[in-house]
Design a protein around this nucleic acid. Structure first.
Lengths: 218, 218
DNA sequence: GCAAAAGTGTTACCGGTACACCCATGT
DNA sequence: ACATGGGTGTACCGGTAACACTTTTGC
């Protein structure tokens, strides 16, 4: 039984700001639009919400179908709902941001729809309000990075403190004192020092670290 | 011209957690539902989104039509979208939280629809996921109160530091050291000390303060 | 030996917390 | 005079910023 007769209904979509980290750059996945209007213009990964799924599930589905990954870090950013934001009709869109490990993406799948990773500071012109979605997502990411510890989702399995330091510098667009950075990071006790060293980028070599698994005692 | 044919459409609503402060209690406005299903059950103030308005505008309209106020502090909380959250049909709802000065409400309007203010810790059973909306809104309010300074919207024009202290105690459900509280609050430089004293609740009398207007130099 | 990155140590400062204490006044 | 809430001062602690310093190793 359905109540609420004669009430207007709307298209509802999710748009995902998918962040990845590679070559010491923070990147966002963009895709040429596959539908009119603005066919071919650069756009975030998105999709309409299906009748049997929640918005979170819709966003997960988009992630699965665009980069081939499941159980991804996903957070609501904000709902974008200006009546004329989409020139093709009224669409209310929930923006999400996602963090993925670039090495784990399904590159074939991504390229099959023309997906490309763009450095966040050098994006092309995006459709509608997608640039705003990216901007707000970055701010959220900074917020998260400030209180928690990012990297678990963006960095490879093992990494050096210098590499993590670099990630933070890129996310915030400024450099942190590296001595203080390592102390602060290690104080969180979320990292485990490995026996192995990374020797490519320095003569002395830097120890690898990895994030503790959830099971491991904090 | 309308693109996106054959794509499912949904009812979209906003639900507002309207906070007020009175008698040293944090209160939320509830209303008996005026529509089926669950006619008469306690519910947040809400409404469906109209074709020509954004979600923010819809929320503002709800505020205007329920407490008679405009230009109200309103923030998105989260979108609630479980397919079966509303037993009357699929409704995707954006939760908002609002802060108002209880003395300024249109009491006649509020009571005309049976609206009642409930102490936040003693709410009746709410429909659907509205309790969850309240819980998340309170958490947001605490977050805001932590970083900024709440009270501008909740307190009367002039108030004593003790009264503001009490508000914070109620919002966080714990007491703060009052000596430190006043120092911290005054350090923000957002308050102006008035010449007048409040003499009802103490023999010595406490000075009134008010918030600086935006124009005043910070 | 020197450059370059890894990693450690030292100091100063700032904000928060705890708490002792003084003030004004109605009863 | 004393109880009550208003209001101030101070000592301490922990986190952070700034920066000097040591270590390792390839060239």
């Amino acid at each position: 039984m359905e109540s609420y007769q004669d009430t207007p209904r709307y298209l509802v979509s999710v748009d995902c700001v998918i962040f990845g980290y590679e070559d010491e750059k923070l990147k966002v996945l963009l895709c040429p639009r596959l539908v009119e209007p603005n066919y071919g213009a650069w756009s975030l990964m998105g999709g309409f919400v299906m009748p049997e799924e929640s918005l979170d599930q819709a966003a997960s589905r988009v992630l699965k179908s665009t980069v081939g990954l499941e159980n991804i870090y996903l957070k609501q950013v904000r709902t974008f709902s200006e009546p004329n934001r989409d020139t093709g009709g009224r669409v209310i869109s929930q923006a999400y941001f996602a963090l993925i490990r670039l090495s784990e993406q399904d590159r074939r799948l991504v390229s099959s729809m023309g997906g490309q990773w763009w450095e966040i500071k050098k994006l092309p012109t995006l459709i509608f309000d997608h640039q705003e979605m990216v901007d707000e997502s970055l701010r959220r990411l900074q917020q998260v990075a400030f209180t928690n510890l990012i990297g678990r989702e963006l960095m490879p399995e093992k990494f050096t403190l210098s590499q993590l330091h670099k990630l933070y510098s890129v996310v915030f667009g400024k450099t942190f004192d590296s001595a203080n950075f390592r102390k602060k990071i290690l104080a969180t006790q979320q990292l485990v020092k490995l026996d192995e060293k990374e020797t490519m980028s320095s003569k002395k070599g830097a120890f690898y670290y990895r994030f503790k698994k959830n099971e491991e005692e904090q």
